[in-house]
Simulated scan of single mutants.
Amino acid sequence: MRILGIESSCDETGVALVETLADGGVPRLAAHALHSQISMHQAYGGVVPELASRDHIRRVLPLTEAVLAEAGWTRADIDVVAFTRGPGLAGALLVGAGVACALGAALGRPVLGVHHLEGHLLSPFLSADPPQFPFVALLVSGGHTQLMRVEGVGRYELLGETIDDAAGEAFDKSAKLMGLPYPGGPWLSKLAEGGDAQAFKLPRPLLHSGDLDFSFAGLKTAVLTQTKKLGADLEARKADLAASTQAAIVEVLVRKSLAALERTGLKRLVVAGGVGANKLLREQLNAACARRKVRVHYPELALCTDNGAMIALAAAMRIQSGLSRPEARYAFDVKPRWPLDALAETPQPSPTA
C-alpha cells in the first residue's frame, strides 16, 4: 500500500510518500518534501494564521508533484491520501484536509485524517534505530509537552502534560524577550552555546511536584524579570541568560522523563517533536538514560519538525494495526483541539464524522 501524507497544521507544509511492506514491518519512506514559512512570518514575530493558510494553498500541489517525481511514482500509484486532521490552526488544517479530499475524490482513492501528535510520536519508527513497544514518550513540539505510556499503536496513556506554556513556547517566548528573531527557540539554543548556564538562578517549575505535569509560564516570567533587571547590560549578558534559560527547561524535561520511566518500570524512551532536536536535551537524556540502562530513540533531525512523513507513517501504522479504515468519503472536518489520549483503540470514524 502506498500512502500520500499531507501536513499543514501550522507554518510548515509537508508532503511525503510511504509504502507498507509485505512482511508487515515498519513502512518505508519513499520520498518527502517540506516548505517552511519562517521567512514569511519573521516580519511579524510569530505565525499569522491567515498568511499560513494562504501559503499552504500555494505549496501543497507543487510539493506533491515533487515527491511523486522523487519516488518515481504517478498519482495513480497512490492508494490512500492521509492528512493532518488536528490539532493545529483551523484554517491551515482546512487547507490540507481540502486538498487531500479533493485529490482522493479525483483519483477515486480513500482518505484518512491523522492526529498530528500521533505522527510525532510514531516518527522515530522511520529512524535508523526504530523503537519497540512499549515505551515512554516525551512529546515536545511547539505547543505541546506531554509524557505518554505507549503500549502500541493507538494505545496511549497520558502520564503528564503542561498546565500552561509548553517547552517550545518557553523557548520561543524567552527568546523574544531577549530580542532574538523568530522562531526564537533555535536562536536561543545557538546563543546558549557561548553562555554560562549557571549565571542566573531561574526557576524549575513543578520539578518537585511529585507528579509528571509541566509548567513553564513561571520561567518565562522570571526571564522577563531578569531582562528588566539587566537593562542596558542585557546585550552583554544575553548568552548567559540564554544558557540559563535553556538549562532550566532541559532539566525539567529530563527529570520528569526519568520519573516517568521509574514510575512505569519501562526501559525505553522515545523523544519526538521539534524541541527533541535540542542538542543539550539529547546530551543530557542520553547520559542519564545510559546510567540507568534505558534506550533512547529520536526521529531523524529532518523529521523532528512538522512533516508529511510522520502523517503518512501514522496512517500506515494505524491501517496495519486495524485501528483506522480509510474511506472514499470526501466531506471533511478538522479538529483544532484534539487530545492525543482521546484516540481509542478501536477503528476511527471517517473525517466526515
Results as ranks from 00 to 15, higher is better:
residue 36 S to Y: 13
residue 326 P to Q: 13
residue 63 L to I: 01
residue 254 V to F: 11
residue 119 G to P: 13
residue 45 G to I: 02
residue 204 R to D: 07
residue 147 L to Q: 14
residue 302 A to Y: 07
residue 147 L to R: 09
residue 161 E to M: 06
residue 193 E to K: 15
residue 207 L to G: 08
residue 246 Q to F: 09
residue 241 L to P: 00
residue 116 H to R: 03
residue 87 P to G: 00
residue 66 A to H: 10
residue 166 A to G: 00
residue 302 A to R: 13
residue 146 Q to M: 09
residue 64 T to L: 10
residue 186 P to C: 05
residue 155 R to G: 02
residue 137 A to Y: 11
residue 343 L to S: 12
residue 142 G to R: 14
residue 129 D to M: 14
residue 138 L to N: 03
residue 57 I to R: 12
residue 139 L to Q: 07
residue 217 A to F: 03
residue 314 A to Y: 08
residue 43 A to C: 08
residue 2 R to G: 00
residue 162 T to N: 04
residue 191 L to W: 05
residue 185 G to K: 04
residue 46 G to L: 04
residue 193 E to D: 10
residue 148 M to R: 00
residue 51 L to P: 12
residue 227 T to M: 03
residue 171 F to V: 07
residue 300 E to L: 13
residue 298 Y to E: 11
residue 299 P to E: 13
residue 219 L to R: 08
residue 254 V to L: 04
residue 103 L to T: 10
residue 28 R to V: 06
residue 263 R to I: 02
residue 75 R to L: 08
residue 139 L to Y: 09
residue 223 V to Q: 08
residue 136 V to H: 11
residue 250 V to I: 12
residue 186 P to H: 07
residue 334 V to P: 10
residue 45 G to A: 06
residue 51 L to W: 10
residue 113 G to C: 09
residue 98 G to T: 15
residue 237 R to E: 14
residue 229 K to C: 07
residue 8 S to R: 10
residue 86 G to W: 03
residue 317 M to S: 11
residue 160 G to K: 09
residue 1 M to S: 10
residue 343 L to E: 06
residue 279 K to M: 10
residue 180 L to T: 03
residue 68 L to Y: 04
residue 56 H to S: 09
residue 182 Y to D: 11
residue 179 G to I: 01
residue 169 E to M: 08
residue 56 H to Q: 03
residue 259 A to G: 05
residue 292 R to Q: 15
residue 152 G to V: 01
residue 279 K to Q: 15
residue 163 I to L: 11
residue 196 D to Y: 00
residue 144 H to C: 06
residue 232 A to T: 09
residue 130 P to I: 07
residue 150 V to A: 02
residue 129 D to S: 15
residue 320 Q to C: 09
residue 316 A to C: 01
residue 199 A to R: 09
residue 317 M to L: 12
residue 135 F to I: 14
residue 304 C to K: 12
residue 98 G to P: 12
residue 247 A to F: 06
residue 229 K to T: 04
residue 218 G to D: 01
residue 121 L to Q: 00
residue 243 A to H: 06
residue 228 K to I: 13
residue 220 K to Q: 12
residue 264 T to S: 01
residue 89 L to S: 07
residue 210 G to K: 14
residue 302 A to I: 10
residue 226 Q to V: 06
residue 306 D to N: 04
residue 310 M to R: 07
residue 1 M to N: 02
residue 295 R to I: 05
residue 329 R to I: 00
residue 140 V to H: 10
residue 317 M to A: 04
residue 201 K to S: 12
residue 142 G to T: 15
residue 3 I to M: 02
residue 2 R to Q: 04
residue 34 L to E: 14
residue 148 M to C: 03
residue 79 D to A: 00
residue 158 L to R: 06
residue 14 G to R: 03
residue 318 R to V: 04
residue 16 A to T: 02
residue 32 H to W: 13
residue 46 G to S: 12
residue 77 D to M: 00
residue 350 S to A: 13
residue 65 E to V: 11
residue 315 A to Y: 14
residue 131 P to S: 13
residue 160 G to M: 04
residue 210 G to P: 15
residue 8 S to M: 00
residue 331 A to S: 15
residue 9 S to H: 01
